[in-house]
């Protein structure tokens, strides 16, 4: 049997996966609890537009994805305020715009479908040194900021009115959370692919919520589960010659379904 760690690309893949698996639940937990899970989908489709844009003008596609994702989440926040109680419309509008933009920009790319395809479904084993450094920096930023603002994020997620009354700058914290979501989605699109990134945001958190008895333990277990899903996904995909992104997502989905079934029986 091949030694998985004999390959440089697999070592890079593991480092990237471990970092992104640490970052995604830090964002996933508050967005799931604030019922913004769909924001992952809307942002990832805009990230695809950024990837196409990056490839088109010759900048790193992850950078393009970060820029477009940030624009997408800020647009969602602005539109949500306009639609009041129908705020979910904002998510659909931005997602549709992201898909439209990707369709147009990818038409200008040479080998466009092949390049975009690698980001739609993930291509962690082809990650470059620059992308590795970018992933380390951005993942560290996401983890650092969410830990720094831990008590503020908890407060606005649990009860935004009370948080606001106690003097927490809810608008600023929400904007920071949205920007971190954009960064996480853009970076993680390299691992699991833009079409599946929201599953990495949601599934570890959803599974952890079934087995945890506090906010803190939900967060810690979400990170642990995300690590288990991504690391086991990389091993299985390597030895069975499967796509890593899809394998990671399906492992997570299977664990979620099994956990939910066991909880239901109890």
């Amino acid at each position: 049997m091949d030694n998985i760690f004999a390959y440089d690309f697999m070592i890079k893949a593991f480092i990237t996966a471990i970092l992104i698996a640490a970052a995604t639940p830090c964002i996933g937990l508050p967005i799931v609890l604030k019922r913004f899970s769909a924001i992952g989908d809307a942002t990832s489709h805009s990230a695809l537009g950024g990837i196409a844009f990056g490839l088109l003008i010759g900048i790193n596609p992850i950078l393009g994805a970060v820029i477009f994702s940030v624009i997408a989440v800020l647009s969602i926040e602005a539109l949500r305020k306009r639609f009041g109680k129908y705020s979910e419309i904002a998510t659909v509008v931005v997602m549709s715009a992201g898909i439209g933009l990707t369709a147009i920009l990818s038409g200008f790319l040479k080998n466009g479908s092949a390049n975009i395809n690698s980001f739609m479904f993930g291509s962690i084993v082809t990650i470059s040194d620059f992308e590795l450094i970018l992933t380390i920096a951005l993942s560290a930023l996401v983890v650092f900021v969410t830990l720094l603002l831990y008590k503020e994020i908890f407060a606005i997620t649990f009860d935004e009115t009370s948080a606001s009354l106690s003097g927490i700058p809810c608008g600023a914290i929400n904007t920071i959370l949205m920007i971190l979501t954009a960064i996480t989605v853009a970076v993680a699109s390299r691992i699991v692919g833009a079409l599946m990134i929201s599953s990495l945001l949601v599934i570890p958190t959803a599974t952890s919520m079934l087995i945890s008895k506090s906010y803190k333990s939900t967060l810690i277990r979400s990170v642990a589960l995300a690590e288990i899903f991504t690391i086991s996904g990389l091993f299985i995909s390597f030895y069975l010659d499967l796509r890593p992104g899809g394998t990671i997502v399906l492992i997570g989905t299977a664990v979620l379904v099994i956990t939910a079934s066991i909880k239901r029986k109890k």
Binding site: L33, L148, L149, K151, E152, F154, A155, T157, F158, D159, T161, S162, A163, S166, G167, I168, M209, S212, K213, S214, Y215, K216, S217, T218
Partner: peptide, 26 residues
Amino acid sequence: NSFNTDFPATVREVVIANLFPRKGLF
């Protein structure tokens, strides 16, 4: 009006969160 009952938070976590005015950011 005040919260989602499925929110995974302990009594302690809910109460201590309101110490923000005393602590400030970070």
